[in-house]
Design a protein around this nucleic acid. Structure first.
Length: 940
RNA sequence: GGGCGAUUAGCUCAGUGGUAGAGCACACCCUUCACACGGGUGGGGCCACAAGUUCGAACCUUGUAUCGCCCACCA
């Protein structure tokens, strides 16, 4: 098959992908090989491939293809995530477009619609992953809501419950009023906003007064007045309606006279205003605001803690959309009950939750409208002291973008603290290796301060929680309804908890749930723990940490298995984010996203992949740079053309893993370059340095192979100087090209597969695809003599080109070189390399005698001074300047080295090899400077 | 408030103790028979700043500045 003149990625990509997939190439049967496993972070089933996926999946595919080339049983598990909120959002949006809404349907109907949608459109991202060339095991594609995986999810829930590690609790949660659901701490994003702080008077009960005294740091009285109120500052006046107390610091002298007394919430109908106690707690900071804090346990995280510590009732004020409650008894009645409850000190959570303490006038108002009204009403009562502008930290839902309302609700929680302990130990002990290491600290910090994980969501799409309630609210947790019924006993009517589980609760099981767990399958035994997990650091807490917790807990069999066997993966590789060219974060709303599919269309998947590898230096973010993608497209084209050259000269596929035997220096040299490249690649793989891998390959192909090796062996093929040696060069060139293709394959799978077959010897075609080739093991060494020889040749050619360019001599000018007193080794090199020196250096011949003219250009190569007679074409002043510059450069280095060597402490204290090297370098530079000085003198 | 990272050529980035590198961009030359998505030759950096450790610092220490990210309950 002749290689086309131009490289067209689109022409080969689809072909090879289909070939690989249809032949099962991604998962060859290697039952006795060492397993190597990566699970792919399941993309949202709603999703389409964004640039971050391109990075993440390219890195994984490089690792998997590399492992496959190493002969391992490489398994890359793939699947999609049901993505509860995101997917429900998409389908609801579609309904909205048709003037319908979710609640027009029954839950079952709606869920059926989502499934329908999933079947229709869920395949987009998996098609796109194929376009990127990802070699996943599609034959076992999974979905987080498929039957087997769902079974695992339910079992985990039930087991955790039975182990006391999962429980139902009424706590303050982050409530997203848009989704009408609880969300986890991680899904809340705090932003700084311009807001206000209002200062109000809370009048003391029964018109009581006290002497309010303020002192400066020295104890001098700065203010003393009679007050009939306590001053309160708040950024959220609408929550005053649910205040249960006012707290001051126990050491705050100003308020000591009134601690234990009652004050009045200054809002609502005057005859039914509630009185709340003034209590002490360590929480208030006497130096902030007035030093007194209103305590609204049901709508503020801080207050919640204070209320809990002091047994202060927490009154929920808002409904599911964060509007002021409009349910329950009228305000007057509720306020009276609240008074009774507060006075008794005895209540249940249900009692309190039934109380709607929103005054009738505010009921049903949006929380911000209610705020305006509260402030206005207090102001009208002359109870407002001041309002100041203030930047406040406001929580937003990361998906909905609306302001989160802390809300007291019943939810399911996982005891994350208990699960985190072994996960912390796993990283500490090295059972999990985090790369780059700098993330360990972040991991520890989060894990050590972990809070209970709220895992229930008030959605319809997801794994419905396997808990049933009887009429008394008693809860039964079991894997099936039958089992729950058995727990509850006969004739007990049960209702299933309508909530679903946090998506991350299920995806946390991905490393073992996809391998068949809870069944003890062969796959599970073989591929757990996974070898590596590749993920963006942005999901370190969301996903990675939770996989570690769940994996160790369930696969560790309650600590009976050692951590090394329990962890989900041995290495956690965290990469950065792909950012826009200006460094900003890519986002749809900013409209600065780059579509990876567009880049593939334009430059080819191989180029995009190579870009991702080349830019991935551990841990750093990647700025998008399209010119660089174009550069790697050029690189692919370069390789393509090198292969064309090879093919047209009968250089074909090699069948050898080991390096061929070679006599020619150029061949021994390039074999050494392959050896060196393989070593560098192996090291880079061991260290997960993707940029290093790309760099090594790029320079091997461009510099060593194309620019020098192919040029150096051209005489044998092109100039018709076919000696006995051309067959050796053909064999070596074919072998080298094969090694390059194999090493490049994980990065550029398409072009390498194409060329692998195109370069096949028609008489003995390849017996396997490159995807199943063998990673190079040259079984050869660097050859010092060959390196020295090729260095001499390369140096001579480069320096000859250089002086021509600098002296404005046409590069094509053919010259004769004189070496007055050549070293014997030089003569031998020149004899062997005459053809290359002629073709690349345009040097017709070498004469071992001085020249008779002073119109000369001179270069120093190794220990030789090479002289070119240039009567009539040389500008001697320019040549003097050129040589002078070279002398200066050599002399500068020589002197620097001399300075170092004359420093007694350097010679005494530096490492001997450093001293030795300095001596050698100094001698070399001194000799070079001397030769150049002599050359300058010859010019007269 | 705590933590992490960055600061190296015009741009994007490598470089962790021993003479400053790559790609792109730039300048000049080359329509040489694999490749103009090419070849050749060049120019360009007090490695953010300051002090310290060391025979020797882009690299180690401390501090400063600027930028970015993460975490955190000052109402």
């Amino acid at each position: 098959m002749t290689i086309d003149k131009t490289f067209d990625p689109a022409a080969i990509e689809a072909k090879w992908y289909a070939h690989w997939e249809s032949t099962g190439a991604f998962r060859p049967d290697r039952p006795s090989a060492e397993p190597y496993t990566i699970v792919n972070p399941p993309p949202n089933v709603t999703g389409s491939l964004h640039i971050g996926h391109a990075l993440d999946n390219t890195l994984q595919d490089i690792l998997i293809r590399h492992a496959r080339l190493q002969g391992k049983d490489a398994l890359w598990v793939v699947g999609t995530d049901h993505a509860g909120i995101a997917t429900q959002m998409v389908v609801e949006r579609q309904l909205n477009a048709r003037q319908q809404k979710r609640t027009d349907f029954s839950r079952d109907e709606f869920v059926a619609k989502v499934w329908e949608w999933k079947e229709e459109s869920g395949g987009e991202i998996t098609r796109q992953l194929r376009r990127l060339g990802c070699s996943m095991d599609w034959s076992n594609e999974r979905f987080t809501m498929d039957e087997g995986f769902s079974k695992a999810v339910i079992k985990v829930f039930v087991d955790l419950f039975n182990q006391g590690l999962l429980y139902r609790d009424k706590r303050l949660v982050n409530w997203d009023p848009h989704f009408k659901s609880a969300i986890s701490d991680l899904e809340v994003e705090t932003r700084e906003m311009n807001g206000h702080m209002w200062h109000f008077k809370y009048p003391l009960a029964d018109g009581e007064t006290y002497t309010y005294v303020e002192r400066d740091a020295d104890g001098n009285v700065t203010l003393e007045e009679e007050r009939d109120y306590i001053a309160i500052a708040t950024t959220r006046p609408e929550t005053m309606l649910g205040d249960g107390a006012v707290a001051v610091h126990p050491d705050d002298e100003r308020y000591k006279p009134i601690v234990g007394k009652l004050c009045e919430i200054p809002v609502g109908p005057k005859d039914h205003r509630r009185l709340i106690p003034i209590i002490t707690d360590e929480y208030p900071d006497p130096d902030f605001g007035s030093g007194a804090v209103k305590i609204t346990g049901a709508h503020d995280q801080n207050d919640y803690g204070v209320a809990q510590r002091n047994n202060i009732p927490m009154y929920r004020l808002m409904d599911e959309v964060a509007a002021m409650r409009s349910d329950g008894a009228p305000y007057a009645e509720a306020a009276a009950q609240a008074k009774a409850i507060a006075a008794s000190g005895q209540w249940t959570a249900a009692d309190i939750d039934a109380l709607n303490l929103v005054p009738d006038a505010y009921r049903g108002l949006d929380r911000y409208e209610a705020r305006k009204r509260v402030v206005g009403d207090i102001d009208a009562d002359s109870l407002m002291i001041a309002v100041e502008n203030k930047t406040i930290q406001q929580p937003f839902g990361d998906r909905s973008g609306v302001v989160i309302e802390p809300m007291l609700t019943d939810q399911w929680y996982v005891d994350a603290k208990t699960l985190a302990a072994p996960a912390i130990e796993a990283v500490r002990s090295g059972a999990i290796d985090i790369v780059p290491k700098s993330w360990e600290k972040t991991y520890f910090n989060w894990m050590e301060n972990i809070q209970p994980w709220c895992v229930s969501r008030q959605l319809w799409w997801g794994h419905q929680i396997p808990a049933w309630f009887d009429d008394n609210g008693k809860c039964y947790v079991a894997e099936t309804e039958e089992a729950a019924q058995t727990l509850a006993g006969p004739n007990v009517a049960l209702t299933r908890d309508p909530d679903v589980l946090d998506t991350w609760f299920s995806s946390a099981l991905w490393p073992f749930g996809t391998l068949g767990w809870p069944e003890q399958t062969g796959e599970l035994n073989r591929h757990y723990p996974n070898d590596v997990l590749v993920s963006g650091f942005d999901i370190l807490f969301f996903w990675d940490a939770r996989m570690a917790m769940q994996g160790i807990h369930f696969m560790g069999e309650g600590g009976r298995r050692p951590l090394e066997e329990s962890v989900p993966w041995k290495t956690l590789y965290l990469h950065g984010l792909v950012r826009a060219a200006d460094g900003s974060k890519m986002s749809k709303s900013k409209g600065n996203t780059v579509d990876p599919l567009g880049l593939i269309d334009q430059y080819g998947a191989d180029a995009l992949r190579f870009f991702m590898a080349a830019m991935e230096s551990q841990g750093r973010d990647i700025k998008m740079d399209e010119s660089r993608v174009a550069g790697y497209r050029n690189f692919a084209t370069k390789l393509w053309n090198a292969a064309r050259f090879a093919q047209s000269n009968g250089i074909g596929g090699s069948h050898s893993i080991s390096a061929p035997k070679a006599k020619l220096a150029v061949n021994r040299w390039i074999i050494g370059e392959v050896v060196s490249t393989v070593e560098k690649m192996n090291k880079a793989f061991a260290e997960f340095r993707f940029d290093g891998m790309a760099d090594v390959l790029y320079h091997m192909v461009f510099d060593q192979f194309c620019d020098w090796y192919l040029e150096l062996i051209k005489p044998a093929f092109v100039d018709g100087e076919k000696g006995e040696m051309d067959s050796e060069s053909k064999i070596v060139a074919g072998w080298v090209l094969d090694q390059i293709l194999v090493m490049l394959h994980p990065f550029m799978p398409f072009i390498t597969e194409e060329l692998w077959h195109a370069l096949s010897d028609p008489a003995a075609p390849r017996s396997y695809d490159i995807i199943h080739a063998k990673w190079p093991e040259p079984n050869a060494a660097m050859d010092a003599d060959a390196i020295a020889e090729i260095n001499w040749v390369v140096d001579t050619i480069s320096k000859t080109r250089s002086f021509k360019a600098e002296l404005n001599i046409a590069p094509g000018t053919r010259l004769i070189a004189n070496i007055a007193e050549p070293q014997s080794s030089t003569v031998a090199i020149i004899e062997r390399q005459a053809a290359a020196l002629s073709r690349l250096g345009r040097i017709d011949s070498f004469v071992y005698a001085p020249v008779s003219t002073n119109n000369i250009a001179q270069i120093v190569v190794g220990g030789d001074t090479v002289v070119f007679a240039l009567d009539g074409v040389i500008d001697l002043d320019a040549e003097r300047a050129r040589i002078t510059k070279a002398i200066e450069a050599a002399a500068k280095e020589r002197d620097a080295l001399a300075g170092r060597l004359s420093n007694a402490s350097f010679v005494e204290r530096a490492k001997p090899e450093a001293v030795e090297k300095a001596r050698a370098d100094h001698a070399e530079k001194a000799a070079e400077a001397d030769r150049l000085t002599a050359a300058l003198a010859r010019l007269g």
